[in-house]
Amino acid sequence: MITHHPHYELLNAYVEGELPASLSAGIAVHAEMCEICAKNIQRITEEAAANTFSDDANVYNSLSKKVITDKAVDNISEFDLMMKSIMEDDSITEMMTQEPLDVEIKGTTYPLPTALRSMAMMGWQKLGKLSRARINLNEGSLHTSLLHIDKDGGVPSHTHKGFELTLLLEGSFEDEKGTYVKGDFIWLTDKHTHTPHTKEGCLCYTVADDALQFTQGLSKLLNPIGKFIY
């Protein structure tokens, strides 16, 4: 069961269109899997729409008190005719359905969520039990990727110079705080340190604005390549 969700501020920013494409996609994918957040997004959207229409109504009521000129009457008539034409059009347009898009990694095939299917993905790069494919969104310092960890693989103990979003698309992994499953939306910052490990293997969607920082033993020697992973 999904237990990790985007906080309210992120959902609200998503509805308002204030997030970069990488984070918007992450929330959209999570909402595909999470009924709770899908309903919260719908509620926030309805509230925003109600507030917008309320503001429009106030403007309309204010304008309606003014004298309507002949030009204004002409504009209203044209609008009425346009709406009548739209409402009387009983033609049906058949919508094209998008075929599922899969990615294959080391012999395992994974279906991609709808929000990720149109994104340009670079080739897979491999380092031990880690495989990573960058998603090219041209967002400057924001790095967006698909990250695959093989069975019984993991990432050494690390923290983050900035933020890190990890959205589990398939499989599961564990760290010091518990177990994460498909659909979990995990938001970490420089205040968090963890050692993710997976028994069955997993595929994740990740967004980070800086490199991770290894924190223990010989793994510190890997810090120069911390940007490879996220």
Rank of each mutant, 00 (worst) to 15 (best):
Met1Tyr: 09
Met1Arg: 14
Pro6Glu: 09
Asn12Met: 05
Leu19Cys: 07
Pro20Asp: 12
Ser22Gly: 10
Leu23Phe: 04
Ala25Ser: 15
Gly26Leu: 05
Ile27Asn: 06
Ala28Glu: 15
Val29Met: 10
His30Leu: 05
Ala31Lys: 04
Met33Phe: 14
Gln42Asp: 15
Gln42Trp: 13
Glu47Val: 06
Ala49Gly: 04
Asn51Met: 11
Thr52Gly: 02
Asp56Met: 01
Asp56Ser: 02
Ala57Gln: 14
Asn58Cys: 13
Asn61Ser: 09
Ser62Gln: 12
Val67Pro: 00
Thr69Leu: 05
Asp74Pro: 00
Asp74His: 04
Asn75Lys: 15
Phe79Val: 11
Leu81Asn: 05
Met87Val: 03
Glu88Cys: 01
Ser91Lys: 10
Thr93Lys: 15
Glu94Tyr: 08
Asp102Ala: 00
Val103Trp: 08
Val103Met: 04
Glu104Leu: 07
Ile105Val: 15
Ile105Glu: 00
Pro111Thr: 15
Leu112Arg: 02
Thr114His: 10
Leu116His: 06
Met119Asn: 13
Ala120Pro: 05
Met121Phe: 13
Gly128Phe: 11
Lys129Asp: 11
Lys129Met: 13
Ser131Leu: 11
Arg132Ser: 08
Ala133Tyr: 12
Leu137Ile: 05
Leu142Ser: 01
His148Thr: 01
Lys151Met: 08
Lys151Gln: 13
Asp152Gly: 00
Gly153His: 11
Thr159Asn: 12
His160Val: 05
His160Gln: 04
Lys161Ile: 14
Phe163Leu: 08
Leu168Phe: 07
Leu168Pro: 00
Leu168Tyr: 05
Leu169Asp: 04
Glu170Met: 03
Glu170Val: 04
Gly171Asp: 03
Glu176Leu: 07
Thr179Val: 07
Lys182Glu: 12
Lys182Thr: 09
Lys182Leu: 02
Asp184Ile: 03
Asp184His: 01
Ile186Cys: 01
Trp187Thr: 03
Thr189Asp: 15
Thr189Arg: 09
Asp190Met: 03
His194Ala: 01
His194Arg: 02
Thr195Cys: 08
Thr198Phe: 07
Cys202Leu: 05
Cys202Gln: 03
Leu203Thr: 06
Tyr205Ala: 03
Ala208Gln: 10
Ala208Tyr: 03
Asp209Glu: 04
Ala211Glu: 12
Leu218Cys: 10
Ser219Trp: 12
Lys220Gly: 02
Asn223Cys: 07
Pro224Tyr: 10
Gly226His: 13
